[in-house]
Write a protein that binds this DNA or RNA. Sequence first.
DNA 1: GGACCGGGTTGATTTGCGTCAACGCCGCAT
DNA 2: ATGCGGCGTTGACGCAAATCAACCCGGTCC
Lengths: 238, 238
Amino acid sequence: MAAFSVRARAVDAAAAIEPCGHCGARTRSVCNAIEAPDLARLAALAHGLTIPAGRQFIEEGDAAEHFFNVTAGTAKLFKMLPDGRRQITGFAGVGDFLGLAVSATYAFGAEAIEPMRICRFSRSRLKTLLADFPALERRLLEVAANELVMAQEQMLLLGRKTARERLASFLIARQSHGDAVRLPMTRSDIADYLGLTIETVSRTLTWLRGQRLIEIPAAAEIVIRDRPALERLAAGLR
Amino acid sequence: MAAFSVRARAVDAAAAIEPCGHCGARTRSVCNAIEAPDLARLAALAHGLTIPAGRQFIEEGDAAEHFFNVTAGTAKLFKMLPDGRRQITGFAGVGDFLGLAVSATYAFGAEAIEPMRICRFSRSRLKTLLADFPALERRLLEVAANELVMAQEQMLLLGRKTARERLASFLIARQSHGDAVRLPMTRSDIADYLGLTIETVSRTLTWLRGQRLIEIPAAAEIVIRDRPALERLAAGLR
DNA sequence: GGACCGGGTTGATTTGCGTCAACGCCGCAT
DNA sequence: ATGCGGCGTTGACGCAAATCAACCCGGTCC
């Protein structure tokens, strides 16, 4: 009976969203800790959502009722001060996991900067799943430890690097397909991520272009032209 | 046979260091995830060390062979740039856990700012322990998630707060026994933690005293005199 | 005692980045 | 076509914090 009920829910979920087995994000996400035979149970707990660009789907301070797994698109994660100052603490792309916080409320807000597909889990149900699949818990610990390392790197950037070094670090970290860097976020987002203003971001990119370190074919696309020099700059070598 | 061997090692460890059952840090550390009957196994894997103030016991970039648990004293954790610029990413006190990083090398350095006692575990052996005690793994995940929340808070501070707000936040966060704030670290450490210079730290503390928000009976001790005002300042309210 | 040294405070000056402002580009709606 | 609003760039100017420098204080080692 219980088994049937689980199966039935799995079928419902599969009908409503892409089943986990076919999920494009699976190999890149925490879900790859789950073996194929158990994916049905995972799908039964998941809820697929489509989110338009610009929609804020996590509000800082709200009761944390869900975990999220990004299956398409990109989100910005941020904290705000009462007068409107904003710090973007990170960008979440395909495979990234959101809502790890143990506390009862979200410690940050999240807003889609591109159309997104996300996989939503109820907090309470996932607890059960964690108990059943220690491998998932181990994977989450790995993910959290990695995030922590990146957070420390970002603290070094925010506390001690110059504007030029910050932009260089940002571009090096985001470069993926060859020398092209895709920038789905606005200059304002980049500024709030690097602890700068939009004007300084713009001026600094212009300066990097003047030094022949990058090219700027479009506002949302940058090409790295002299990677070694950019890496030296990012590392703080004078 | 196997059980005997484990017991024997537990006895050896108990002789060499304080047994976990009597450890003053236990209730405050990750070790409280372990039940008393299993503490002997924990003690068998632990290695107690005494570290004098000023000694760096983790070198950034070194092979990460150990985990550490602080049982007395305080350490500063930091990252450096090649020209000497330094960012302190946190302070580790009694009960804190160091070396979570999954990567093969330490992502930060650690130096004692007071005489310390630490409990050292071999990375490889702890892996075994984690497999045996899922509760420990769950506890580590909680700890990591908490660290992540604090790291995001620090990014907001470093990226968007003024010098006055940074010092106010620092003092509010460190206040523990009543209104007294103990500062075992130097002004240079505070500056490197808050992304400022020692001169700005000194001047800003003097300014806070002038506003009657704090008193400075000694360089290493500050008393909060107007907590609500200090909290407003820390929160960024103008 | 006194020379020395590391840590801390305070003052004068500089500077990197922020602020304020103008303008160009592009997509879109009417 | 035309006006409009969001985004990005560039220039002039201002300011918070960095830099440079002098000095104080309390240990400690001759």
